[in-house]
Amino acid sequence: MKMLSLLSAMLFPALALLGCASPPTDPTTASVAPPAQVISPSPAVRPQPADVLKKMAGYLRSLDRFTVRVERTTELILPTNQRLHADQTLEVALQKPNRLRVNYQNLSGGRQLFYDGTNFSLYTPEANVYASAAAAPTIDETLDLLATQYRISLPVADLLVANPDSRLAQNLTSATYVGRILIQGVPCHHLAFQTPEVDWEIWIEDGPQPLPRRLLLTDKSVEGSPQMMANLTRWDLAPTFPADFFTFKPPQNAQKITFLEQVRAVSPAKAAQ
């Protein structure tokens, strides 16, 4: 016993010297310390999912411009039924009613989509090609045009269009308020909805800025019900866009090409000559 206390008397200063007992100014201990707790009192009344959704939609509608990063993971089901998950990051810049720029990032230089109110352009730096075509007068209509006519989709566009609630509230067969949870440090309402084809969940910031922070959907209309999850991060609600930020200026040596649809619509006979 005496031996033990002697040992501890010898050990303690040694441990102190090693930094174990030093104050948290030491960078190594500081990084180990847990992050500040986010404490947000729960509401007195359980919110209605439709109300939370409407609030988000109204808030998004009130924004006249923003930038956001969409970090998306898409599940791919192979013919062998193995599931893979592919990541994609998009930087979205939007200014209502008719300016949009999207940077689709990938390892080979990605591609960029521009919409300047009159035309839209798609540019692929790796291949050094671009294409342009007439767009619609608004972001909403242009997104529809891109999707239906050119098969270019903007993931999570449902959340970004001028009337998100009108799209999100379609065909709902169930709506659930799951609860509140932290998403990347932000307190969020967790909602779950069902339509005949899709089960989807959304996490909406609980606070004065009810922004969508995460979307997860399970596509029941596809065999195996693959999922898509998108985190919406780095919201900037007051970005300043340089002049002509939304206008595509083709690099001098870039080649203008066409969409397959345009080729076939214009000259099917010529192509088959």
Binding site: D144, A147, M228
Partner: peptide, 14 residues
């Protein structure tokens, strides 16, 4: 081929 989910919730248009 490979099966993938849609990228948007709403409607058929997207």
């Amino acid at each position: 081929g490979v099966r993938t989910p849609r990228a948007n919730i709403g409607g058929g248009s997207h």
